[in-house]
């Protein structure tokens, strides 16, 4: 029975792989969002968003609470499919992949587009098991290969020296900052192209937060990173590109976007200026 299921699964993946593969594209892909809207039941959460996020750079998404920043992230890896009554329209392309095409395989999409949440949630098993489960799901069965990818990802996130002697103990014993870095490492082990980060520092203390920030900066150039944050100083420090969202009549709208320098030093729109200088939001 299990074999039948896995056969069925691999068949499906082979067919869809080609449609959803960004393997041929450069190491990281740009994200093109075109006339994209999201409705929750009768509420419009995002209206007509069109923006192109540059590859291999850190794009900060800023704006007040409820302006649809998280909804935008959830749309890029189609986590929004999990939210009942959410309906998306418009197009999002990651490299050559049409995310909302009916043929897009979500498993492959989400391997390529990793997501970091506000609240780090390691699975309540050992640190090693946290890597094993996703890697095995994505077809890496070989113990040695799993070990290599885990070690590399833990080194990339600076966690290796802190946990190398207790890979078999529970991930629940880690501190908040370590948990977040573990969650990032768990993603990196899958070799994604895009990283979506939804306020990854907001649940952490300043020191842990600084470490995550350094980590994100060290990943620049290797992944296309979309970074949602409430913290304008943080956005200023790390972003290459910035997009400013605002809430109009309960609906999130994209007000202005451009290089981070331009947005932070000479915003074109009055709302952006007010928000950045602290007069609004």
């Amino acid at each position: 029975m299990k074999k039948a299921i896995s056969l069925y699964k691999s068949d499906l993946e082979d067919v869809r792989y080609a449609e959803c593969d960004t393997g041929g594209a450069p190491a990281c892909s740009p994200i093109e969002i075109e006339s994209f809207s999201v409705n929750y039941a009768s509420n419009c959460a995002l209206r007509n968003i069109s923006i192109s996020l540059p590859p291999c750079q850190i794009s900060a998404v800023i704006g007040p609470s409820g302006c649809g920043k998280t909804t935008l992230l959830y749309s890029i890896n189609r986590l929004i499919d999990l939210i009942p009554e959410a309906r998306a329209s418009g197009a999002i392309k990651i490299g050559a992949t049409d995310v909302y095409s009916a043929k897009c395989n979500l498993v492959n999409l989400r391997r390529r587009v990793g997501m970091v949440f506000q609240q780090p949630v390691p699975f309540p098993f050992s640190i090693r098991r946290n890597f094993e489960i996703p890697l095995k799901e994505h077809g890496i069965q070989d113990r040695k290969q799993i070990e290599e990818r885990m070690t590399q990802a833990l080194k990339d996130t600076g966690l290796w020296h802190e946990v190398k002697d207790r890979l078999n103990s529970s991930a629940a014993t880690l501190s908040g900052g370590q948990k977040q870095r573990l969650c990032i490492a768990r993603l990196l082990a899958l070799k994604p192209k895009v990283l979506l980060m939804d306020e990854p520092c907001s649940a952490l203390d300043p020191i842990a937060s600084e470490k995550i920030e350094e980590l994100v900066l060290s990943l620049r150039g290797r992944y296309t990173i979309v970074f949602v944050t409430h913290n304008l100083q943080q956005a200023r420090r790390i972003a290459d590109y910035a997009a400013f969202f605002w809430l109009k009549n309960g609906t999130g709208e994209l007000i202005e976007h451009g290089s981070a320098d331009a947005i932070f030093s000479s915003p074109q729109h009055e709302l952006t200026g007010n928000y950045i200088s602290g007069r609004a939001g």
Binding site: L79, R111, F123, F125, E137
Partner: peptide, 27 residues
């Protein structure tokens, strides 16, 4: 169990089958 487990499983590209039998049931 926190809904976060399901969300994180989905975000890692785990199938519903894997999420249930490898994450939810063991947790």
């Amino acid at each position: 169990l926190p809904e976060d487990y399901t969300l994180n499983s989905a975000a890692l590209g785990l199938s519903t089958y894997t999420a249930f039998f490898r994450i939810i049931v063991p947790a």
